[in-house]
């Protein structure tokens, strides 16, 4: 078992959630980020998938717990459970499919409904390597992000462009927020889904 288990040594644990329409490449981005692999026809996510990667940001070891959701799930209780305790939410659309971009505002609405108030949202336009089939310009993506007041990146799981950047930037923003609110002890942004264990711990086990 210990071979499978990721390192338990970290300074902070963050729960991040990937959301967006079916087929925009949520699972592919996650696979690229955690295992540095790419598979053009990745199996449909049913329920959720879940992967962990520990990164280093501002001298701190951060364990990222990334939850990958099914684009088609509509059940409220279940969706609520996914969002619970999420500190960051990556909202993904596909730059080669304008309908997924048109749905971003719906997703944004769902996210703000379910997620914690201070959860950080991050907008991502995936498949930016595919210039030939592009339907959504980078400028439009940027404009929408500004309108929603969230950070934005275009990325490609296929070419590995910006994949790490999404997670590093998001983690860094959350970290910063945290420093600001840390004095405020009862911060609700802390992931407490680890029963009995704190979100902040050093070299436990």
């Amino acid at each position: 078992m210990s071979g499978r288990a990721p390192s338990r040594s970290y300074d902070m644990i963050m729960k991040l959630l990937l959301v967006g329409d079916s087929g925009v490449g949520k699972s592919c981005l996650l696979l690229r980020f955690v295992e540095d692999k790419f598979n053009p026809s990745f199996i449909t996510t049913i329920g959720i998938d879940f992967k962990i990667r520990t990164i280093e940001s501002k001298g701190k070891k951060i364990k990222l717990q990334v939850w990958d959701t099914a684009g088609q799930e509509r059940f409220r209780t279940i969706t609520t459970a996914y969002y619970r305790g999420a500190m960051g939410i990556v909202l993904i659309y596909d730059v080669t499919d304008s309908r997924t971009f048109e749905n971003v505002e719906n997703w944004f609405h769902t996210v703000t409904q379910h997620a914690n108030e201070d959860a950080q949202i991050f907008l991502v336009g995936n498949k930016c390597d595919d210039e030939e089939n592009r339907q959504v310009s980078k400028e439009d993506g940027q404009a929408l992000a500004s309108k929603l007041n969230v950070p934005f990146l275009e990325a490609s799981a296929k070419s590995n462009e910006n994949v790490d950047s999404i997670f590093y930037e998001l983690a860094s923003i959350i970290q910063e927020k945290h420093v600001n609110t840390e004095t405020n002890t009862a911060s609700s942004g802390v992931d407490v889904s680890q029963g009995g264990a704190s979100s902040f711990k050093s070299n436990c086990c």
Binding site: G85, T185, V192, G196, A197, S198, S199, F200
Partner: peptide, 25 residues
């Protein structure tokens, strides 16, 4: 042996199914 969450990390996730919320593990 029991793990007590340090202060500030009070569990808020299990309010739904835990009528005995005040109890330790």
């Amino acid at each position: 042996k029991q793990e007590r969450p340090p202060s500030g990390a009070r569990d808020s996730t299990e309010t739904l199914n835990a009528p005995e919320k005040g109890l330790s593990n």
